[in-house]
Nucleic acid binder design. Structure first.
Lengths: 213, 213
DNA sequence: GTCTCGTGTAGGAATCGCCCTACACGAAGC
DNA sequence: GCTTCGTGTAGGGCGATTCCTACACGAGAC
């Protein structure tokens, strides 16, 4: 029996996934979490083989959450579930310790297959996504510009898009605002943009982030 | 029997919702659509009482789609389903012809209740959302905040969103940058926002711009 | 007719953020 | 091994922006 923990903030989606998983005889949902803090509490108390993890949820989330989970003793296999099929995010997630990457575009049967695969210690990547990853990685500089951003730049990119000021980013990350500003300038150059407004528009057009988080 | 059509682009979410609805005896899913074009085709061929509509999907979507659907002969009741609980978007959706507004944070039973309510010709708004709407917008005023902007403020709003700096706006309009800044502060207050990034996000979420996806 | 209120307009002070410059450090190249 | 490059880190100077304040003017309100 594969024990699965579902981390997904939208109740409706979470319940829907539970319903879908209940169709499989070899999969059992042993817990769920609606935000990052609840998730870490659940992980401490509930043993499971697979964690179904949404990338965007309140509290600790995303790449950082994956790193923390992967570092836990008896860490479950992590199957990332996301709305967008961004190669960028996928490769970062896998690098951070995730075992698989599925999008919400997937067929339900594919999700079951993905869970079984990562539970067995193998990797799973959404086929369409894997295709694009291979293609884009092979193309070198034909990759979308945002994939050339460094970790730090990407982190600041996200914060800027979500409306946090340069000064406050500095405070949150405990670095000088000057440093944040430098990262901002560099990432703007990489993306060939000039203003913060451009940045937000870029993020929306590339559908990198979920609005309203 | 309430016949429901589901318009939602993410297969997994769509299937999950189908599973949830199948638990109710009085609700029947008669069709589904993964993008705007498929949706309009389905609406022509399939009669239904309630359309469960995701605001963000490929093809015709959002407020524009709601207007078009509401204008159809024998238009179904529209229950909007969204990830975010944005009051602005909700009021615009209702004004455009939607009968209800539920978020994906809702409990499954609330979704069933919402479907039954709109099927009966009544309105449904997510309780938490309704609360915020009343609080943020004042009783009865269902107008989106950006409609309360003055001509000048709206003009500067557009320029800011398209990436023009305060100084350059001043030059273009032949007024002081200080004046532009004043307008900016006032319009941000009206929209209950704080930064330029928020402004651009708002514009996208309220779909004042058509993202070229 | 006067009195608000919203709007368009700025100035001065303070702050923020950009730009240039710089340096340390690890990875990759030669 | 030495060099180059990308990255993360800042400081100083200065222009850009905000914040507070102010005033004129037209539209309604009373």
């Amino acid at each position: 029996m594969i024990r699965v923990l579902i981390a997904e903030d939208h109740t409706l989606v979470r319940e829907g996934i539970k319903q879908l998983l209940s169709m499989a005889d070899d999969i059992e949902v042993v817990g769920e979490a609606s935000d990052g803090d609840v998730l870490f509490a659940a992980l401490r108390e509930t043993a499971c083989e697979v964690l179904l993890l949404d990338m965007t949820m309140p509290g600790p989330h995303g790449i950082e959450a994956i790193k923390r989970i992967a570092a836990l003793p008896q860490a479950p296999r992590i199957l990332v579930l996301t709305m967008h099929n961004e190669t960028q995010i996928a490769s970062r997630a896998l690098k951070a310790g995730a075992s698989g990457f599925a999008t919400k575009d997937s067929e339900p049967t594919m999700l079951l297959a993905a869970i079984r695969k990562v539970a067995a210690g193998r990797r799973y990547i959404d086929p369409a996504l894997a295709d694009r990853m291979v293609f884009e990685m092979g193309m070198g500089d034909a990759r979308p510009p945002h994939e050339t951003l460094s970790e730090r730049e990407y982190q600041i990119f996200e914060l800027l898009v979500s409306g946090v000021s340069v000064t406050e980013i500095g405070e949150r990350l405990s670095i000088s605002s000057k440093t944040v500003s430098t990262h901002k300038i560099r990432l703007l150059q990489k993306l060939n943009l000039t203003t913060t407004a451009d940045l937000v528009r870029y993020a929306f057009e590339a559908q990198l982030f979920t609005p309203g988080v």
